[in-house]
C-alpha cells in the first residue's frame, strides 16, 4: 500500500501465538461460574465466555496463566505442554 498504510485491520490474528506456550490453562467446566474475570485480564484476548463457561482459544493462548491466578473459584489449573 502507498506509504505503508495497512487497511486489513485486525489482520494480525493470522499470527498464531499458541506455539509460545509452556503451560496450558485447563478450565474445569464444573467449577467455572462464567464470571468473566479471566477474559477481562487475558492479555491475548483469547478467552470467551460461551454458555456461561470460559473457553480458551489455544491458537493464541501464550500460557501466562493470569487466568488461573485471578479465577475466584479455582476453576483453572495448568498442565505442562508436551514439546
Amino acid at each position: 500500500m502507498v506509504g505503508g498504510v495497512v487497511t486489513k485491520v485486525g489482520s494480525l490474528d493470522s499470527n498464531k501465538t499458541g506455539s509460545w506456550r509452556s503451560f496450558r490453562p485447563v478450565i474445569d467446566r464444573e467449577k467455572c461460574i462464567g464470571c468473566g474475570l479471566c477474559k477481562k485480564f487475558c492479555p491475548d484476548v483469547c478467552i470467551e465466555i460461551k454458555d456461561k463457561k470460559a473457553e480458551v482459544d489455544y491458537d493464541y493462548c501464550k500460557g501466562c496463566l493470569i487466568c488461573k491466578s485471578v479465577c475466584p473459584v479455582q476453576a483453572i489449573s495448568s498442565e505442562e505442554e508436551e514439546k
Partner: peptide, 24 residues
C-alpha cells in the same frame, strides 16, 4: 490513501522487517 476515520479504520505508521522496509 491515508486517512484516520472510524468509519474506515486503517493503521498508519506500522513498522517493517528488512524486506518490506527495503521495498517501501
Amino acid at each position: 490513501h491515508a486517512y484516520l476515520d472510524p468509519k474506515r479504520p486503517q493503521t498508519q505508521g506500522a513498522w517493517a522487517m528488512q524486506e518490506p522496509y527495503f521495498e517501501l
